[in-house]
Amino acid sequence: MSLFGRAFADGDRLDVAGTPVTLRVNRRARRVSLRLDRTRREIVATAPSPRRLPEAAAFARERSAWIAQRIAELPDAAPVHPGLVLRVFGEPVVLRTGTGRANWTAAAGAEPASIWAMGEGEGYARAVILILKRRALAVLAERTEVYAAMLGAAAPSVTVADAKARWGSCRPGLRGGQAAIRYSWRLALAPFEVADYVAAHECAHLLELNHGPRFWAHVKALVGEPAPHRAWLRVEGARLHAFGR
């Protein structure tokens, strides 16, 4: 038992002001702290050691007003419905009601691209998201192939998922096997230049499994200065994750 209450473990979750709070141990931390995880829409309470997790939990409860304010500042959930106009890799796309299997029609003249899907509510949203995943995979796989070739690396396999913590991840090829890169499909909702930067970033990991100077030199050689794209994701990432919620 602790001065601050019951014992807690790394990864435990609390509810404070109607908001999930996850307790984490970071031995490099010098003090108890709180931060907002914008993509997960939760608060992370960090302690320097397991024995100080109760202190982190108590600190989160003390800061309930701050927590409520940070959550209130997040973008609202963005439901999917016919008539909604999205930006897919920067280009306008209209969501429309159709019959049969969901599909994508390219822009033609003054008409923007469209996603056609049947149904309503969650069923309609799932059909639209399926098309967005396919579009994300097609574009990101093509950019990955381009950048892997520019770096002189073997082309990796490419998949998309709905990752909460990362926009992309790279698993190196072991013992001569094929490397694998996975992207968040929500990058389809970002400007093309931002998604393209993430592809270059992950491809650079095919050569450098770190974020050292040589890694960033590869990224800059492919897409130039990464800072604006990284800043865009920090500011707008929560909005991308709110889509379809």
Rank of each mutant, 00 (worst) to 15 (best):
M1E: 10
L3A: 13
L3C: 01
G5V: 10
A7S: 13
A7T: 15
A7N: 12
F8G: 01
D10R: 12
G11F: 01
D12M: 08
D12W: 09
R13E: 15
D15I: 07
V16E: 08
V16G: 06
A17W: 05
A17R: 08
P20T: 06
V21N: 03
V21F: 08
L23K: 03
V25L: 02
V25W: 01
N26E: 09
R27L: 00
R27T: 04
R28V: 01
R28W: 00
A29R: 11
R30H: 14
R31L: 09
V32Y: 05
S33I: 02
L34V: 02
L36D: 09
T39F: 09
T39G: 09
T39D: 10
E42Q: 15
A45I: 10
P48I: 03
P50Y: 07
R51Q: 14
R52V: 13
L53D: 03
L53V: 00
E55Y: 03
A56T: 12
A58R: 14
A58C: 05
E62K: 15
E62P: 04
E62Q: 13
S64W: 04
I67R: 04
Q69A: 15
Q69N: 14
Q69I: 12
R70D: 05
R70W: 15
D76F: 03
A77S: 11
P82F: 01
G83F: 07
L84R: 15
V85E: 14
R87M: 09
G90Y: 11
V93M: 03
V93C: 10
V93E: 00
V94L: 08
V94H: 07
T97H: 04
G98S: 10
T99I: 05
R101I: 01
N103H: 15
N103R: 14
W104T: 00
W104A: 04
A106K: 05
A110W: 03
E111Y: 04
P112I: 05
A113Y: 01
S114N: 03
I115F: 11
A117H: 00
G121F: 05
G121D: 13
G123T: 11
Y124V: 07
A127F: 00
I129A: 06
I131Y: 02
L132P: 06
K133Y: 00
R134V: 00
A136S: 13
E145L: 12
Y147T: 02
A148Y: 04
L151G: 01
L151S: 09
L151E: 11
A153V: 11
P156T: 02
V158C: 07
V160K: 03
D162P: 03
K164A: 12
K164V: 11
K164T: 09
A165Y: 01
S169K: 04
R171G: 04
P172G: 10
P172Q: 13
G173P: 07
R175E: 15
G176C: 12
R182H: 01
A188N: 05
L189P: 02
L189Q: 10
A190L: 14
F192A: 14
F192W: 04
E193G: 06
E193T: 03
E193A: 15
A200I: 03
H201L: 01
E202G: 02
L207G: 12
E208S: 08
L209N: 12
H211N: 06
H211A: 03
G212E: 03
R214M: 11
W216V: 05
V219A: 11
K220S: 15
V223R: 13
G224M: 07
P228F: 11
H229A: 05
H229N: 12
L233Y: 02
R234V: 09
V235F: 09
R239K: 13
R239V: 02
L240Q: 09
H241S: 04
